[in-house]
Design a protein around this nucleic acid. Structure first.
Lengths: 266, 266
DNA sequence: CGTAAGCTTGACAAAGTTCAACGATTGTGG
DNA sequence: CCACAATCGTTGAACTTTGTCAAGCTTACG
């Protein structure tokens, strides 16, 4: 039935950009110093423009990959902030906790993403990072990264770009939460998910949601029932096919149009 | 009535990042290169822990203060990103523009704040910064700041702290927009405004709003009528006194309680 | 195989928006 | 300096969107 690879943990991407693959499951030679240069994600996660020597030096920074099982936390609010992480495999959510048991998901993260960078400047974590499926991350001790970025300009630029991207993402999220209605939010969510998966070599139109309706709702600032109804409506109107976690976008332009219409001057 | 001296920095062209390309960051003759050490805001806006020498060097980075009149833009979306700014006086809003004329205010800024830092990593501005009252900002060319932060660790830390604070602020905003109801948002807004003003030595309980109801609404993701009604309700219940832009907090604890109650487990 | 978790849907309630009217304030040009 | 226009703020009433509660169904899992 499916002709395209889905974004399941087992499926390999169909057209992985510059596919440079290590046999899946092969243990990373612990701190080999050049582990990164052989990583299948190096195009995506490493700073560009490093010399061979710099790359080797950078490589020594990195902790050997750490596993985080589904449901487990990579870090919790209150933990000391001492490292940022590169997601090597899997899928995670970051959560912000407030008073009265209120909480909100502030992001979903998958392979190639840098996570945990938001705590820079504070001593402790203010958010929590929890795996939604079995995942693997590479830690980079932040103090050493900061040091090293002082004499490797490309690394400094890399760090700043990551921070900047975090800020830009947050801004679009504020925009979404501040100006869009429920259906627009969901449409926007689906399109951006599709975009991110495409950039990783997966099918742009068909994917598996790794999170529950409740988690989508938390992220988008709405209740799970509203998420569910919006999914059903999109399906009824022929824009998507949805069956539980399995989604297929039939008419992305329609979703885009749904977002675009609103509010003209005067 | 203000007196206007035509040969002061006041007369700077509005579009200076584009046209005024020469000598960015050259020490301002009028201010003698150590202007910062004598600035009334130095405790608040400068990096801490700089040696005398470093401080002097940092000082040479800074453009002489530039005025932005109420209603004018410091920069617009699409402008080249080449500097960040320290607000020396006044009050500004940052705006994010979307399709279909949608827009959202993503922040309000006043003296001592660092603004325009969000575009790091991109070539161009993605947001717009507009003065709500006559304001004055000091520009810092970003490229040179990045350079200099390489050999002055305290400066690097300063930069990272600013970025981090931006991220943390954005997260609380996402939390507010994602989990709070209209009245909670407004209460939260008032309390944080009070907090910020207190930190600047103003009265914690009485202040003048520099923005309209519509701007508050845009920031908080609600309509101006809803803002107005919430104000009226707070007043009716004795929590605040409000008369147009003039606000007095009578019972901050009640506002705090209003936010705190909601949602228990199971 | 039974229980828990997740998803969908309906009916109703609550919150927020829209539209409209009107008063107050501000700013501008005569 | 006044008069007029424009902007801003408040409030009511009708309406729309979203949340709440409840039921039933499916799927996952021990």
């Amino acid at each position: 039935m499916h002709t395209r690879a889905l974004n399941t943990p087992t499926a390999m991407p169909v057209s992985f950009p510059r596919s440079e693959r290590l046999a899946p499951g092969v243990a990373n030679p612990a701190l080999g110093g050049n582990a990164c240069t052989r990583c299948r994600l190096r195009q995506r996660c490493l700073p560009t423009g490093l010399s061979e020597e710099n790359l080797r030096e950078f490589s020594t920074l990195i902790f050997s990959p750490r596993r985080v099982k589904a449901g487990q936390a990579l870090y919790r609010a209150g933990d000391a902030f001492d490292a940022i992480y590169l997601v090597r495999r899997g899928f995670l959510k970051s959560i912000m906790l407030g008073e009265a048991g209120r909480e909100q998901i502030t992001g979903f993260h998958t392979e190639g993403d840098v996570v945990g960078i938001d705590a820079i400047g504070s001593e402790r974590r203010t958010t929590e990072m929890v795996a939604l499926e079995d995942s693997e991350v590479c830690g980079i001790p932040y103090a050493r990264l900061e040091d090293m970025s002082r004499h490797i300009p490309a690394l400094q630029r890399y760090l700043h770009r990551q921070l900047s991207e975090e800020i830009v993402r947050n801004h679009s999220m504020m925009f979404l939460l501040g100006t869009m209605r429920a259906e627009e939010r969901l449409a926007s969510f689906l399109l951006s998910l599709s975009e991110r998966l495409t950039a990783r070599g997966f099918s742009p139109s068909e994917f598996i949601l790794r999170m529950t309706r409740e988690e989508i709702g938390s992220f988008l600032g709405m209740k799970l029932e509203t998420v569910s109804r919006a999914f059903s409506k999109f399906q009824r109107e022929g824009m998507i096919l949805v069956e539980s976690k399995h989604v297929r976008l039939l008419d992305p332009e329609a979703l885009q149009r749904l977002i675009g219409r609103q509010a003209q001057p005067q």
